[in-house]
Design a protein around this nucleic acid. Sequence first.
DNA 1: AACCTATTTAATAACTCTATTAAATAACTT
DNA 2: AAGTTATTTAATAGAGTTATTAAATAGGTT
Lengths: 203, 203
Amino acid sequence: MQKNNMEEQILLVAKELFMQFGYEGVSTTQVAKTVGCNQALVHYYYRTKQNLFKIICQQEIQKMLKILADIPQEDISFENFIEKIIEAQIGFLKNNPDAPFFIIGELRHNSEVLKMMKELFSEFGKEIVGKIRLFVQMKQSKGELKDISIEDLLIDIVSLDVMSFVGQVLFTQILEMDSQTQEAFLERRKTHIKKLILSSIKS
Amino acid sequence: MQKNNMEEQILLVAKELFMQFGYEGVSTTQVAKTVGCNQALVHYYYRTKQNLFKIICQQEIQKMLKILADIPQEDISFENFIEKIIEAQIGFLKNNPDAPFFIIGELRHNSEVLKMMKELFSEFGKEIVGKIRLFVQMKQSKGELKDISIEDLLIDIVSLDVMSFVGQVLFTQILEMDSQTQEAFLERRKTHIKKLILSSIKS
DNA sequence: AACCTATTTAATAACTCTATTAAATAACTT
DNA sequence: AAGTTATTTAATAGAGTTATTAAATAGGTT
């Protein structure tokens, strides 16, 4: 596991901490202490806190967008395609439950994150939306699909998926759920979202 | 307007700043500087930063929950009731566009906010859900409404409403919208959400 | 005017934070 | 083994943070 590769260790630990506590909530001192190295080492490898944060942001936001890009869209029905999107997204969120909090939390006052989202969206996002649009048009030309707005559809899906996790944190605490109930909550939400979205696009 | 009531001025300014930049993102020095008073005065009136934050949180979260509680539910159809919920919520968000960012952003690492949400939900939230549940049961007993989960319905509505605003910030920046287009985006979303939700509960 | 209380400020203690520097140690290369 | 480079640390400058204290000022009351 650890061959004492500090450079990587620092990145790993910093990722965890930044994701959980945000840019302002983490100090390079804290990163070093968690890694178990001297604080100067963090700056030796990454020069500035801002730079360390930027690297991590780029990686994570890219990962997030790739989830949508990686969904295969050949030889499947639109219903199946939508289900795959929802499943991929909820799957990602299960592995990265901090992600929505991180993005939304930083979006507000960390211009770095906004700038990066903008850049990465130009790079990947547009392509994804374009691919989906093509797929939809193809289905529509065959009369298999009613007239829908892809933007609205995507916003709907992302909204419902993401907020299931935000809501989960709230309910977990407010209703004092155990982890089993949490898992069940998410599964219920997933089924519900699929049904809701599919019923909205049925021709 | 201002009779140099510093106590109130401080609270007002602190509210704005905390809402925009979060707990960690604001210093009492910054609050004082913005108000135009000495930094010690902030502590004179509110003792600690934590306490000042707590007061503001309480006020704002209460305001937020009250939006749902204040929706009249007498002598209206369920469709109308749902529309009213969506309208009230989007209306509130238009007046407090920072609110979702604030809540979600702080929820993650500020245990104060989570604790408060818990307390205030026990106080107001349960009552609201209870009232809505009663309303739904009444409609259902008359056969005017199919079997739905109120929890899912509320989560759906809140998710779609809230994320319209989060999404708006993203799209505004990414697609370089002007404020007119922003307004139109929100109106479009409102109409779309109403349609989506209503179509999902139609018996 | 004298007294009292509320408001406001200047000064500062005690931290913590980022970033840099010089020095120490470890790891290779020949 | 000696030399060279990479890694790691201790120390610290300089700025900013919260919170407290004592002193100054303003407002009201008798």
